[in-house]
């Protein structure tokens, strides 16, 4: 396994590896954004992920989330853990089957260097940002906002305000026939993951 591990990391910039391996990133939600962010970050070889979600896998999730037909009815955290472990065993996975609220953000994600917001509703996004930024004014939080629909690639962007990063078009609302679909959800999730790496590796070449 050590040989596989060495090979896994062999193409990375050697200066990135210790930072990557010591990084601990929180993902609040394991749905469309969260499951995709988790897969991408495990692919990078990130040291540890802390992932929280209360929900179970439903058939409607399969259109954009990193779950499989055989996992219907399983908790998302159990299903995602098993899928991530199939990629490789070099990322520590701390899973919490719980609904995140103002009280448990700090106990669950407090040890993380960066928090990635991957919730569904705007209300819960606001709660998470307010709670995180109040508790940890210096720690980054990366939010997804505006990712429904199809097309319009170039409207998707990242905006920074202090320690808050927003990925998405900040415009497209879920309404009527505009639903979240795999390509744009995947793009925004990967923008969030990419943004996290950029923060981690800042100043290192």
């Amino acid at each position: 396994m050590q040989a596989i591990k060495d090979q896994f990391f062999s193409r990375h910039n050697p200066r990135f590896i210790p930072i990557l391996r010591h990084a601990r990133i929180g993902i609040a939600g394991a749905g469309g954004l969260g499951s995709n962010v988790a897969v991408t970050l495990v692919r990078t070889g990130i040291g540890a992920l802390v992932i929280a979600d209360f929900d179970r896998v439903e058939a409607s999730n399969l259109n954009r989330q990193q779950f499989f037909l055989s996992q219907l009815g399983e908790t998302k955290v159990d299903a995602l853990k098993s899928n991530l472990e199939k990629i490789h065993p070099f990322t520590l996975l701390e899973m919490h089957q719980i609904r995140i609220n103002e009280e448990n953000v700090v106990p669950i994600f407090g040890q993380c260097d960066i928090l990635i917001e991957a919730f569904d509703t705007a209300e819960s996004k606001e709660m998470l940002i307010e709670t995180w930024c109040s508790a940890f004014p210096k720690k980054p939080i990366i939010v997804g906002s505006g990712l429904a629909g199809v097309g319009n690639n170039n409207a998707l962007k990242t905006r920074q305000s202090g320690t808050l990063y927003i990925c998405g078009d900040e415009t497209t609302q879920l309404q009527g026939r505009i639903s979240p679909m795999a390509p744009r959800v995947g793009i925004v999730a990967n923008m969030q993951a990419n943004c996290a790496l950029e923060i981690l590796f800042k100043g290192i070449q």
Partner: peptide
């Protein structure tokens, strides 16, 4: 949000207003 009615904006402030949109 609880401070929106009381928080004073200083001169020359840089303000970011970020829309949070459901979907994820």
């Amino acid at each position: 949000r609880a401070q929106w009615d009381s928080y004073r904006i200083p001169e020359h402030a840089e303000v970011s207003v970020i829309h949070l949109i459901s979907g994820g």
